[in-house]
Design a protein around this nucleic acid. Structure first.
Lengths: 270, 270
DNA sequence: GGAAAAATAGAATTTATAGTCTATTTCTGA
DNA sequence: TCAGAAATAGACTATAAATTCTATTTTTCC
């Protein structure tokens, strides 16, 4: 279709960027999938790539042509030839990184990736299915979901808020902008979803206290069981994030957050 | 021929050592070639492997059988799958989930934990150490770091902002509250850290464009290489998050974000 | 040194995969 | 709103690859 086929991965990438501006829907899906999974090309069939991209194999073929290849096979050949093998695998890679890249940003990355994985595993082990179901149940029944989470918990709260928005779940993020606290927006029939981690922000705890006193159900996302939210009759989901140094990446917390959001979204649309 | 097929590369290697003691000439050639070129198995045909080993394809087939596989294809599958950490086909898994475990939040959790772990591993594999170092370098030299990230990227931006704050790195989060865009706050000597994921928000792209035109360095955190930020001369870190259905947990992205923050914080305090 | 067993090479068969063609749908511009 | 063009889905065909089979050669053991 176009001029000549890319002769190297670099050229391939350039071409991909070039064309991806002006691509119709399905072909754009191909471009995005390929961009994110270049390593799969060498070891997959067209059918697999097409399925991954969510298109028909023939569409994927057209995509290969637009990139300048005669077909999928030619494109695959480029990747197979320059395929160096993805090993050593994750654990050896991590070890190497720790040993030689000490002090660099890459070494840090290794540590945080590891911490993240450990946190996720731990989440799966410690979460109580019953409590999770209860939380979903409570949130699904709410007329409106109020979300609060400040400081370190704010990213989590805003993410949940975004997810609810996308799924048409009525939700309101209490961000405390301008020092307005909007307690009065919370009405009977609503539910409060509070996110807080040590050091627990006073505003969040106060809000839970106030709201809880009015008999409004509260779902809490917090760390450990000694969190101050325990005092109130809240459905408490606790996540313990493995920390590295003084910092915690929020891998497990966000994972739980998205699960909660999707589960609630699905249940409400039933 | 023998008992069961190796289920991992490790088992495969053990088996290879086991049998290679007592092998006739041609099959020994196969064993030696395979041992020296394990990485080629995933991307070659039997004919190619046989030629490489200097034997007939049928001899190579017998070799595969002796190792415990039903044929070459099965052996190849092992290598293709373990490359890139066995690829979970999330679209079909999601469908299955919808069909059987409707409503079970725990099942959802399992899927998202898996997706998160895969994303983290992938991050470790695909991140370019040099680019990461460049990004840290650029940010560490900045007089002030401006952070922008809207919609889905907002949690990430706010998290980075929080981390910088904790480490006394001068940073400003451009949240677009009240529609004020504060472009003028960005001055020579500053650096812009832009976070954006598909669908790319126009505000972020515009800001990068404007700032970039003024010669101010930009560090971008985005997905894939087809992102619109590629056009500008930005130091681009791309993270591809394994998506599950229409949703992505931000595990890998947040991990990279914290790494960036900590690395910058550390470098500045040196 | 010869018979039996094992191993090998090469052709034949079967299966899987890429690539092609066409009817249908979806966009686009008048 | 309609006509034309472009894009897409799905069936169909050609091709390339894996696998099996058999005749031949090599090895092994008596």
């Amino acid at each position: 279709m176009e001029d000549r086929a890319p002769a190297s991965i670099k050229q391939f990438e350039e071409r991909l960027i070039d064309v991806s501006e002006s691509l119709p829907k399905r072909l754009r899906q191909c471009a995005e999938y390929v961009a994110a999974n270049k390593d799969r090309i060498a070891v997959s069939t067209v059918a697999e790539m097409a399925e991954g991209a969510g298109v028909q194999p023939s569409a994927f073929m057209r995509f290969c042509r637009i990139l300048g290849f005669s077909g999928f096979s030619e494109m695959q050949r480029l990747f197979r030839e320059s395929y160096a093998g993805g090993w050593p695998d994750y654990s050896t890679r991590l070890k190497n990184l720790r040993e030689k890249a000490e002090g660099s940003a890459s070494a840090l990355l290794g540590e945080f990736v590891d911490a993240g994985r450990a946190s996720l595993e731990n989440l799966l082990k410690t979460i109580d299915a019953k409590t999770l179901d209860d939380a979903v149940e409570a949130l699904a029944k709410a007329q409106m979901i109020h979300i609060i989470g400040l400081r370190r918990s704010f990213p989590v709260a805003s993410y949940i808020s975004y997810a609810f928005e996308k799924m048409n779940v009525p939700a309101m993020l209490h961000s405390g902008v301008g020092g307005l606290d909007n307690h009065n927006a919370i009405r009977t029939g609503d539910v409060l979803l509070a996110v807080t981690f040590s050091p627990y922000s006073a505003e969040t705890v106060d809000m839970v206290e106030a709201v809880s006193a009015r008999g409004i159900p509260v779902v809490a996302l917090t760390d450990t069981i000694v969190s101050p939210l325990r005092k109130f009759e809240a459905i408490t989901l606790s996540v313990s994030e493995v920390d590295f140094g003084a910092f915690r990446s929020l891998s497990a917390t966000l994972c739980l957050a998205i699960v909660l959001s999707v589960a609630v979204g699905t249940k409400r649309s039933e």
